[in-house]
Amino acid sequence: MASSTTGEKKILTLKGGDNEEFILEESLVLQSELLKNMVKEERVSSIPLPSIKSKTLVKIIEYLKKHAELTPSNKEEFKNFEKEFVNVVLEELLDITVAVNYLKINGLLEFCCQAVADRIKDKSVEAVRKIFRIESDFTPEEESEFRKETPEAFEGDLDDTTN
């Protein structure tokens, strides 16, 4: 009886890595090539996604919902949403990117890859190390050689904020 109350809308359950369940309309997940094929071919109603953390899945579902509501009139609003969407700590952004790549949500994948690229672009070597929390494993001699050889690589935005 429960299914009849939702009318023609099909309901799908996604199970995140920590067994948390997300119930959403099937039409939403069709943006994902992977899920689309699963739904179409196997007519499943529950899809386990053990490799994706629930936290990441929450973000992705949030995006799918916003994207489904996208109309020519709220384009600006969507752009702002996208900007905020990737304004997260690096680890989270990489988690989302990997998950989106796995789910094959192509538009969002391009957007996420650009967001990662933006954290490298126009940044100095030092800033990139800070953003990605990398310790240089070059010897002090090599390090000073680089600076002498190619000072411009160490120029650029020293700011390590994400934007």
Binding site: V98, C113, A117, I120, I134, A153
Partner: peptide, 21 residues
């Protein structure tokens, strides 16, 4: 994904990648 990201970067950034670690 790495290829996708790297292909969005200008030459200078790629060169810097070589110096990060």
């Amino acid at each position: 994904i790495i290829i996708n990201i790297i292909n969005r970067l200008p030459f200078k950034s790629l060169f810097q990648i070589c110096l990060v670690s």
